[in-house]
């Protein structure tokens, strides 16, 4: 399905959202675990991150109402599904806080959903 998506435009939206909200990275994975959009302010192995997350998602029931989260000493990883085919992952620094990361995940999901539907 992402063949008909304008990936450049999607990446622009994502990068704007990352900068606007002081996030570190946003990753969108397709149903097979491949990254379709990845924007990050620091270096992290995109393929490894996507593969690890996709394998993890194969174990867990991720859906719109059940975002998962990882809290590290200096940052957070939050993720949820984006429509029926995609997974949305946010990496946020500690300053953003967990609650706000979860709110931003929801906002980004709505924002991208509108864009993808249009």
């Amino acid at each position: 399905m992402h063949g008909i998506l304008n990936l450049e435009a999607l990446k622009d939206k994502v990068s704007y959202f990352v900068k606007e909200n002081c996030l570190d990275s946003v990753l969108i994975l397709d149903s097979e675990g491949f990254p379709i959009v990845f924007y990050s302010l620091f270096y992290v192995d995109e393929d490894k991150l996507s593969a690890d997350l996709a394998s993890l998602f194969s174990f867990i029931d991720i859906n719109c109402n059940n975002p998962l989260f990882f809290k590290f000493n200096r940052g957070y990883v939050v993720a949820s599904s984006l429509g029926s085919e995609y997974k949305l992952v946010i990496l946020a620094p500690e300053s953003v806080k967990l609650n706000r990361s979860l709110v931003l995940l929801r906002d980004l999901k709505l924002y991208l959903q509108r864009f993808m539907d249009s």
Binding site: L56, I60, D61, F70, K71, G75
Partner: peptide, 26 residues
Amino acid sequence: PLLSDFISLLNKVYGDLEVAAFPIKG
């Protein structure tokens, strides 16, 4: 092992894991 891989990838950036939560089988 899968979680350990994922956590060690992000350790370099975010330090040690404190807590993680996710759904499995409801």
